[in-house]
Design a protein around this nucleic acid. Structure first.
Lengths: 215, 215
DNA sequence: TAAGTTTCGTGATAGCCTCTAACTAAATCT
DNA sequence: AGATTTAGTTAGAGGCTATCACGAAACTTA
């Protein structure tokens, strides 16, 4: 016997229309970038007139913020799943890469060009912190390597972030390196800066990853 | 005695108006991002009516392409100057960082979110190659470190890029690492992903740089 | 079931934007 | 001085975001 749905038909319909709007928005973003996203075009695709969409999203910016939120959530879920099943650092990194390749514009919605005025709402930064926590868990599980660096000492004194994560400063440093280096390779690959050069970006990615795990 | 100017007054006037348009465009981009760039607004600022600007730039896209071109040229000049005076790798890296901090949106015009359909014209990619050449010169001048990696072997077989630069594959690998790692730190810093965390991004940057130069 | 209320979608409209076209006036060339 | 090129204008087509007032459908409640 199916569980009684607590939501009213209206709420269900509303949620359904909202997700259809978002699906179309993702399509547009994937093919033409976020700046080309048009509420009007989405409305026409769905067979209704422009202003109707404003019943579902207060503004274009609010829709984009919602997409950013979903992108963060998707990345956090991918991360949690990848780290949860096996605690394999390489698997975590490759999960990130596959998630990014799956929809480059979704990656850039999070890590791409920032809009000068924009500040993400608190719940979004909370998801970002969640992602960082998983990364810190992973780096805390890494075997120790060389001596503490000067930068470790600096991090020791400035670790407000990471929500009082119990990782040692060395793990903080390695989490940052993990993040910045993989992002460095990935974002240049996704932006097409390696096309024309003939090497395989996947090998560069794993080379960086190996270097991160070796040290 | 002043050199006779080969350009006619009209050409000079035209060039002057073009640069004023570009200056205003840079202001707009710096304060509101490239997607908010408005030819109309620029025209009003300059005291003329909208369509007048189309005498100077065929379209909004052509103006942006011109800005991208100038950004690349500026970066290439900065790079050449930084490497030319002293051949100091750290100075080269810090010149990059200062150039980026000087106008983050200019950096993102080159290395930020790509527009799916867009392909840069050949002369722009030529400047990009020029930048890469300087980086390869620098990495070729680096003392050799450990044994060849598997990725070195791959690069050996796929070095169409770099315009037949005489650098050994190890230098190619290090140039890529230089590029991707510094970009990784820089782009996340410029996009504001480190705000909230309390550490100093400059120290992370130099830590990555030191690591690059130590190995 | 009937009346009241909330919600959805509409068309009209204001105010941006890019870009084209026709026209005037000024600068330059012959 | 006359012919030609060029710079700027206004008008307008067609796109966009967003607001508003209105009708119609769907729920809620008496």
């Amino acid at each position: 016997m199916a569980e009684t749905d607590t939501t009213s038909p209206r709420e269900r319909y509303r949620a359904q229309v909202r997700t259809e709007i978002k699906d179309r928005a993702w399509e547009q973003i994937a093919t033409a970038g976020a700046s080309a996203l048009s509420l009007n075009a989405i409305a026409k695709q769905m067979g209704m007139s422009g202003p109707a969409l404003y019943r579902y999203f207060a503004s274009r910016d609010e829709l984009i913020t919602e997409l950013i939120r979903d992108a963060y959530r998707s990345l956090a879920d991918t991360f949690r799943a990848a780290w949860g099943s096996g605690s394999d650092h390489a698997a975590l990194a490759h999960a990130l890469r596959e998630w990014a390749l799956d929809d480059p514009q979704r990656y850039f919605l999070i890590y791409g060009t920032p809009v000068p005025g924009y500040h993400a709402p608190d719940d979004v930064t909370a998801i970002a912190a969640e992602i960082m926590t998983i990364l810190l868990d992973a780096c805390a599980a890494l075997p120790a390597d060389g001596p503490a660096t000067p930068f470790d000492a600096h991090l020791e004194g400035h670790r407000q972030w990471a929500g009082d994560h119990p990782a040692p400063p060395e793990a903080l440093r390695r989490a940052l390196a993990f993040w910045t280096r993989l992002h460095g390779v990935l974002s240049l690959e996704l932006a097409g800066h390696f096309t024309g050069m003939r090497f395989d970006p996947a090998l560069l990615f794993t080379a960086e990853l190996d270097d991160l795990l070796a040290h």
